[in-house]
Simulated scan of single mutants.
Amino acid sequence: MQTLTAMIRELETRMQGLLNDLQKIKKQARLLAEENDKLREELARFYGKPLEENPAGEGLKELRDLYNRGFHICHGHFGRTRTGDCLFCEAFWSREREGSM
């Protein structure tokens, strides 16, 4: 049977490991948020409009245009080239149709 002191040390070690993992996850989340902001700015520049001037309805039209040009619009693969239909992209359009009814 472990002593109480040994159990506390082991718990501290595991907690430090979890804290390190949390720091790594926070850093990755920050990097992804920065990348997302850059991609939004590039997309707005691509369409020649400032980001704040794009109304929501026009944004959906632009997403449809991207999808029709062969790009993913789903969260997991956004902006990547599609080689065929994507269930996740299609699910997005299904939700949009249901929401607009």
Rank of each mutant, 00 (worst) to 15 (best):
H75E: 13
R69L: 10
L60Y: 11
L32R: 14
L66Y: 04
E34D: 15
Q2Y: 01
P50A: 14
T13L: 03
G59H: 02
T83M: 01
L11N: 11
E53G: 03
Y47T: 04
Y67K: 10
K27I: 09
E98M: 06
G79T: 08
E58L: 02
E62H: 05
E53P: 01
H75S: 11
L22N: 12
H77Q: 15
A33G: 08
G57L: 03
Y67P: 04
M1P: 07
G48T: 02
R9V: 10
R80N: 11
L32G: 11
P55V: 06
R69E: 10
F78C: 09
Y47V: 06
G57Y: 02
K27M: 11
R30A: 09
F71K: 14
N20M: 04
E98A: 07
L11T: 13
T5G: 04
K24V: 08
K61P: 00
F88K: 15
C86V: 07
K49T: 12
R14V: 02
L19I: 10
K61R: 10
E35C: 06
L87C: 03
G84V: 05
E34P: 02
R97G: 01
P55D: 06
R9H: 13
R95P: 00
F88L: 09
T13G: 02
G17S: 01
T3M: 03
